[in-house]
Simulated assay, not measured.
Amino acid sequence: MPRFLIVYVRWVERLNYGVGRVAMFSLFALMGILLWGAIARAGWQPQIWTDEMAQFLLMGYFMLGGAYALQLGSAVRMDLLYSRWSDRTKAAVDAVTILMLVVYLGILLWGGIESTLYALEYSERRRGLWRPYMAPIKIVMVIGIVLMILQCTAFFIRDIARLRKVEL
């Protein structure tokens, strides 16, 4: 395999590992916000921002942690046939399915970018009492999709290397 592909795969996996580890710690912020909201409801006037902020943090957690979950193999896989296949057959099937996933993520990215541009252009806000701006969370969504596309391309390169019997 060309050296730049090996460097690309290692760079993408290091990036997604780091972002995923940081995203894991956002759960502590989420717990803090939910705890604050629960205490405020029980003790004094409920805070209008806690539920929506928790939803935004959870969405950011899922989107930024998606590539990390792919990297760790945490995705659900039907193992009826897969476990019986040879490594080359697994690599071939994985390469095809990764291409389908990249197409799906590409369409999702296109819609995400259009939605983000709309939110930025028109200062879109969420309906409700708090009315937070939507652009920041949509930007996080687009970043998460890009990270998943990068991870999928790294997987594709690894699968092609396995088909060629080259170790990365």
Rank of each mutant, 00 (worst) to 15 (best):
M1I: 00
P2M: 12
P2T: 11
R3E: 08
R3Y: 10
R3T: 09
Y8D: 05
W11A: 14
E13H: 10
E13S: 02
R14W: 14
R14E: 09
N16E: 03
N16K: 01
V19Y: 02
V22N: 11
A23N: 01
F25W: 10
F25A: 10
L27K: 08
F28S: 13
F28A: 15
L30A: 10
G32N: 07
I33Y: 03
I33E: 04
L35S: 12
G37L: 06
G37P: 02
G37F: 04
I39Q: 06
I39D: 08
Q45M: 14
P46A: 07
P46N: 00
Q47D: 13
Q47I: 15
I48L: 09
W49E: 09
T50F: 00
T50S: 14
Q55C: 07
F56L: 04
F56V: 04
M59C: 13
M59Y: 08
Y61V: 07
F62R: 03
F62I: 11
M63I: 05
Y68M: 09
A69Y: 12
L70D: 06
L72M: 14
S74N: 15
A75W: 15
L80N: 10
Y82N: 06
R84F: 03
W85A: 10
R88Y: 13
R88T: 13
R88V: 15
K90C: 10
A91F: 04
V93K: 02
V93Q: 05
V93D: 00
D94Y: 06
A95E: 01
L99V: 03
M100F: 15
L101P: 01
L105W: 00
L109S: 06
L117S: 01
Y118L: 12
Y118M: 09
E121M: 04
E124V: 10
P132Q: 04
Y133Q: 14
M134G: 00
P136R: 04
I139R: 06
M141V: 11
G144W: 01
I145E: 05
V146W: 05
L147E: 02
M148L: 15
C152W: 13
A154K: 05
A161M: 02
K165N: 14
K165V: 12
V166R: 10
E167K: 15
